[in-house]
Computed example of a mutant assay.
Amino acid sequence: MIQDRGNIKWASMMLPEHLELLREFKQEHTEQPRELTDWELEELQHTIDQAYNQQIDIKLEVWMDSKTTQWNGIIKSINFNTNELILETLIKTTRIPIQYIQSAQLEVDYYD
């Protein structure tokens, strides 16, 4: 199998000015998290409160490291001092900053 090294193979032929411009271009065109409206923030808060109070599985989309990551689990606690919620997944317990949460959806099993 052929392994492509991407831009690394061309780096030796590029001028330092070109490399600098490519780095600037990459920084300018990184995806930014979208701003949530007041209505979306209220719905997000309601969904998180319901999942926490009823101990229901929840699916969270979290913006971290210039990408969206999905987490599934049960919210064990909400720390308002550090603005984090503690999410217990099947594998581990994770601290998720509340300001990075983009969406939340309850994982309700109707067949119980």
Rank of each mutant, 00 (worst) to 15 (best):
Q55G: 01
L19E: 09
L87E: 02
P97G: 03
F80V: 15
A11Q: 15
W63P: 09
A104S: 08
R23M: 09
N7A: 15
N53Q: 11
I48Y: 09
W63E: 12
T68V: 15
V108F: 00
L36N: 01
L22P: 02
K59R: 11
E107K: 08
K67I: 14
W10Y: 12
E84T: 14
K92D: 14
N79P: 04
A51I: 14
I56Q: 09
D4Y: 01
L41C: 08
E88K: 03
W10L: 14
I2H: 15
L87V: 05
V108H: 00
P97H: 06
E20H: 05
K92R: 14
L21I: 10
I91C: 00
I58A: 03
H46V: 03
I75V: 09
E40V: 02
T93F: 07
K26N: 13
P16V: 00
T37R: 03
E107G: 07
Q70F: 09
N72H: 04
Y52R: 09
I56M: 08
W63G: 09
D112W: 00
K92G: 07
E35C: 02
F80K: 12
Y100Q: 15
Q70W: 04
Q50L: 12
E84L: 14
E88F: 00
T94V: 11
N72P: 01
K26L: 15
P16T: 02
Q45R: 14
D57S: 02
H29T: 13
S66V: 03
E31N: 08
L87Y: 02
G73F: 03
D38P: 06
I101S: 07
T94G: 00
W71M: 10
L41W: 01
I96Q: 01
R95C: 10
N81C: 02
E31M: 14
K59N: 11
S66P: 05
Q27M: 12
Q32D: 14
E107D: 07
D112N: 04
Q102S: 13
L19I: 14
E61T: 10
I2E: 15
E88P: 00
Y52C: 02
E88H: 01
Q27A: 12
W71G: 03
W71E: 11
W10C: 08
W39P: 01
E31R: 06
T68K: 01
Q45F: 10
W63Q: 11
I56L: 12
A11F: 06
T30P: 04
E35V: 03
L41N: 13
I74P: 02
S66A: 11
V62W: 08
I58V: 13
S77F: 07
L44E: 13
M1Y: 03
I98H: 09
I86K: 12
Y100I: 15
W71D: 07
E17R: 10
E42V: 06
Q27L: 14
D38Y: 00
S12T: 09
V62I: 13
K26T: 07
